[in-house]
């Protein structure tokens, strides 16, 4: 218990993820304060209780107890002292909350769109990045977020920030990253079937690299198939379409190319490039027999080169 206390005093980060944003240490100091008074209060109550159980255990069946109905001073103290502590916690929490909410004027703005079940990030020059949020290190970043369908919530544990993402309106969040690296993004508002796969990553890079990346100068040396595999993961195609032959929510991609598909409405088609393109962009048009109409349309969501890469990737998955 003592080592726990010392750790929280020393590092102010007990059981917390790495402190990757400028605000994280402030949140963790508040946490350390809360943890210490919580542990002390719990010890006081629990130890007092256990001591009394032992000290005043019943020694004979006819034993009498003291008749004590109340004590105003004691009752005042154990109402007032907690109240003071609660008010300290409240004011401290208010201060941290205020800092969490208000982004500095010069913050770099990025748009975020949540949809079942993926994140997409759009930069001011129109560049769209799926599942990877590139941000510069050492500069405040403000995210303007909205949802295309249901409520999501955008959470980066290492930055100690979280905000619900609502359909039909914008909400925002800000942070400043201290160190380059990759940080986990979660969806924390339950949003349906693949809620727990609605993940993304923050990729924090130095300003110079960020500028290069965002202006599209970062040259990709991946083959179309590799690029397609990346898109397959990034766009969460993998939550519904397997590549190992098992049927999940949708048909598997393995050995898909060249098959003749029967549709729910009775029609059929051979899986070729055009069919794949149509199935991705206008996914509700034909439903393969045995499956349901759950896939969102990707018209306007995927860029042409991503669709092409995906098709190349699916073609490469032979039996």
């Amino acid at each position: 218990m003592l080592s726990l206390l010392l750790t929280s005093l020393g590092h102010a980060s007990t059981f917390m993820p790495p402190q990757a944003s400028t605000i994280a240490p402030a949140v963790d100091r508040l946490y350390a304060f809360l943890l210490i008074i919580s542990v002390l209060a719990s010890i006081l109550v629990i130890a007092g209780m256990l001591y009394f159980i032992f000290k005043y255990r019943r020694k004979s069946e006819t034993e009498k107890s003291a008749y004590i109905t109340h004590n105003h001073l004691a009752e005042f103290l154990w109402s007032f002292i907690p109240l003071v502590l609660f008010i300290v916690a409240f004011v401290w929490g208010w201060k941290v909350y205020h800092d969490l909410r208000f982004a500095p004027e010069n913050a770099y703005e990025i748009f975020v769109r949540g949809q079942q079940w993926s994140w997409e990030f759009e930069y001011q020059n129109g560049h769209k990045s799926p599942a990877e949020l590139y941000v510069p290190v050492g500069r405040p970043v403000k995210l303007l977020m909205t949802s295309s369908d249901v409520i999501h919530s955008f959470f980066i544990p290492s930055f100690r920030v979280k905000q619900d993402v609502l359909p039909g309106r914008y909400s925002s969040i800000w942070f400043e990253v201290k160190e380059p690296g990759e940080y986990q993004i979660f969806c924390t508002e339950y949003c349906g079937l693949q809620h727990s796969s609605m993940l993304a990553k923050v990729v924090a890079v130095p300003q110079k690299d960020f500028d290069m990346w965002v202006s599209g100068k970062a040259v990709s040396n991946l083959s179309p198939e590799e690029q397609g595999h990346k898109t397959y993961i990034a766009r969460n195609c993998n939550s519904c379409h397997s590549i190992d032959g098992s049927a999940v929510v949708g048909p598997t991609f393995k050995g898909n190319f060249g098959l003749t598909r029967q549709f729910e409405d009775g029609g059929s088609a051979v899986v070729d490039e055009n069919y794949l393109r149509e199935s991705i962009l206008d996914s509700q048009k034909h439903i393969v027999k045995g499956y349901t109409k759950v896939m969102p349309t990707y018209e306007g969501v995927l860029e042409d080169k991503e669709v092409e890469a995906l098709i190349a990737f699916i073609k490469s998955l032979k039996n």
Partner: peptide, 10 residues
């Protein structure tokens, strides 16, 4: 504690 709940919420 509102500033703390932001991290713990959900």
């Amino acid at each position: 504690t509102v500033g703390m709940d932001v991290h713990f919420h959900d």
